[in-house]
Design a protein around this nucleic acid. Structure first.
Length: 613
DNA sequence: AGCACGCCGACT
DNA sequence: GTCGGCGTGCTC
């Protein structure tokens, strides 16, 4: 008798055994989808193994075999198993993240005949590519892609967002004369593209994070560009990091991996140092811009006075006189970062997320940056009924209007999300983070404002984020860059100033080591959410005590219990417990065992391994 | 995740 | 007496 071990895209641990009917016994393979009765429902399941023995008494038969050709090959099946173990989710949930939406819903696909390639055995090789010059990075990528394709192996290239992805497509077409397959969330032809890859009609795939699971055979190279970008971490269960999946896939399939970017993540850097891999450093073509670190204007925020330092204002004036392009960078959108009642001091907050609402002058609207809630500014304070709402804090909109006032001769524009900006007809651009996604833009002068806000955040990754952001901006600089900060001696600025990234990495790694933070140790975050604040808090405290009591292992530390960093988000209240361990496997084992018997009604518990917050 | 079973409060 | 609230536990 043949039995199939089946898992489901549910938060239930399996696998569950089913009888394979005689008629299917010759066709069924691991990695295929089946339709089976599970409890009282009919579900799509994934066969993860076949066996002749079972210890389950009452077995049901498989109702239908959906796939003649398995949707997951052995390697990807193994990869999803690893994902589920590492990131603490069920195998079925991991499998579903690796498949297109329509396949999860049971849509059938024609069977595929494989060309059998001889399996090349090659030692997996990690390359860390560090360059703020995107064109230089692309030259490197194209050379490696070509080399891989020439040796008849296939390529996955991952990009952080669709905008960058579509640009990358053009570069591949113009550089190699090949049309790549594209995989990204919301790809209208997702299944067509996926199937084209499955049929081995294309050998190069570009995509955002889920494309790391692309069903390519005979894979030879995975490129993760802008590897330091936090969007590579999935913000929903399972909370996988694309870089880690890429590394694991390369390990399973013996491929090369290139982790490239402007500023390597601490995780990747640590890995490369551990493996004694020297980063490939490519200097910016045309040389580094001049970098000036100056103190900010002292009276910022007081009406109409000194938003910029004197040095920055003078430099801007000089640039304007010679008709050069200027960028003012401020990592904060909107006009005012908060609005409050002048009488009782009450800030206007989002009702669902409890964060301050940002005032947008354009459209005269208050917006929540987390849930996108919008409201008209109230005429009177909702708390004390006084009639005077005040706005403060600087956003890009405010800077834009101030610059227009101080430099009436200049054409000032805010960089728009849509990118519909007249570049030629503008002298001064005001932009936040998204400008970094525009590698073709070049500015003779860049002024970075309020960078200390981003350095001073209570997040141990604040320095790393700031360093990555500034490195990204450096890629847009052609002449001079002025950074306004009170913290000129910070290792972020020392590294930039002396064009030696190791000044940053050495110091940052030293601090992380002292604090027992990643990349030296792994963190795990247990998140609890529910509609009732008191119940969530109570459950979190009980969970904390429960975990502390259950922790016999000296290698695991239960660090803290806190309200979620947005304690209230989309109507749910959040509490979280932070743990750390040198061994992520041990941490997940510990959590699996100890959270299984921790159930509270109305509370949903999820686990995030290697969280980013 | 669902879905049923089960054990307590207010309704014909 | 029973309808329904959701807390608890199982699904091969």
């Amino acid at each position: 008798m043949l039995y199939a071990q089946v898992v489901f895209g549910l938060a239930v641990s399996g696998p569950f055994d089913y009888i394979v009917p005689q008629a299917l016994a010759g066709n069924i393979k691991a990695g295929a989808r089946v339709r089976v009765s599970f409890g009282r429902r009919i579900l799509i399941g994934y066969v993860v193994g076949l066996t002749h023995t079972t210890c389950i008494k009452k077995l049901k038969p498989i109702a239908e075999l959906i796939d003649q050709t398995p949707v997951l090959n052995k390697d990807i099946l193994l990869l999803t198993k690893w994902l589920s173990d590492y990131y603490c989710c069920s195998w079925g949930e991991a499998i579903e993240t690796a498949l297109p939406q329509s396949l999860r819903r049971g849509l059938s696909i024609p069977s595929v005949k494989y060309n059998d390639y001889p399996r090349f055995s090659k030692t997996p090789q990690l390359i860390l590519l560090q360059s703020i010059d995107r064109f230089a990075r692309w030259d490197f990528y194209l050379k490696e892609i070509k080399r891989t394709l020439d040796s008849r192996r296939s390529v996955i290239m991952l990009l952080p967002d669709i905008h960058t992805l579509l640009r990358a497509r053009e570069k591949i077409i113009s550089g190699l004369n090949i049309i790549p397959a594209l995989l990204y969330r919301k790809q209208p032809k997702e299944l067509d593209e996926w199937f084209k890859i499955k049929k081995q009609e294309v050998r190069i795939v570009l995509g955002t994070r889920a494309a790391v699971f692309a069903p390519l055979e005979n894979l030879g190279l995975i490129i993760v560009d802008e590897e330091e970008d936090f969007v590579y971490k999935q913000d929903q269960v399972p909370h996988y990091h694309t870089r880690e999946i890429a590394l694991k896939r390369s390990d399973i399939e013996d491929t090369q991996v290139i982790l490239g970017g402007s500023a390597t993540s601490l995780e990747a850097l640590y890995l490369s140092r551990k493996n004694k891999v020297s980063p490939v450093l490519i200097p910016k073509s045309g040389g580094m811009p001049q970098i000036d670190i100056v103190p900010p204007a002292r009276h910022r925020g007081i009406k109409n006075i000194d938003i910029l330092s004197r040095y920055a204002s003078d430099s801007i004036a000089g640039c304007l006189a010679s008709g050069k392009k200027i960028l003012i960078f401020l990592n904060r959108k909107g006009f005012a970062t908060f609005a409050y009642c002048h009488n009782c001091g009450l800030p206007l907050k989002c009702l669902r997320c409890a964060v301050n609402l940002v005032y947008h002058f354009q459209g005269q609207v208050l917006t929540c940056n987390y849930c996108n809630f919008k409201m008209q500014p109230p005429e009177i304070c909702p708390s004390c009924n006084s009639g005077y709402i005040k706005y403060s804090g600087l956003g890009t909109e405010k800077i834009e209007s101030e610059l227009a006032r101080v430099f009436p001769q200049a054409r000032v524009a805010k960089w728009d999300e849509s990118g519909q900006v007249n570049f030629k007809g503008t002298d001064i651009f005001v932009a936040s983070q998204n400008i970094i996604k525009e590698p073709d833009l070049k500015f003779s002068l860049i002024v970075v404002m309020a960078v200390d806000n981003s350095l001073n955040r209570i997040d141990f990754r604040a320095s790393e984020r700031t360093f990555a952001t500034l490195s990204g901006i450096l890629g847009l600089a052609e002449g001079k860059i002025i950074i306004e900060t009170y913290l000129s001696n910070h290792h972020v600025f020392r590294a930039l100033k002396s064009a030696d990234m190791n000044i940053f990495y050495d110091e940052e790694l030293k601090q992380r080591k002292q604090l027992n933070f990643p990349p030296y140790r792994h963190l795990g975050l247990v998140k609890l959410r529910g509609k009732n604040y008191a119940k969530v808090k109570e459950a979190a405290e009980a969970c904390f005590n429960h975990l502390t009591k259950g922790n016999k292992d000296k290698f695991i530390k239960i660090l803290s219990i806190n309200p979620g960093h947005h304690p209230k988000l989309r109507g749910n209240f959040y509490w979280q417990i932070l743990l750390s361990s040198a061994k992520p496997r041990a941490l997940v084992e510990f959590l699996k065992i100890n959270l299984k018997d921790f159930l509270h009604s109305g509370i949903i518990v999820t686990v995030d391994i290697d969280p980013i917050y």
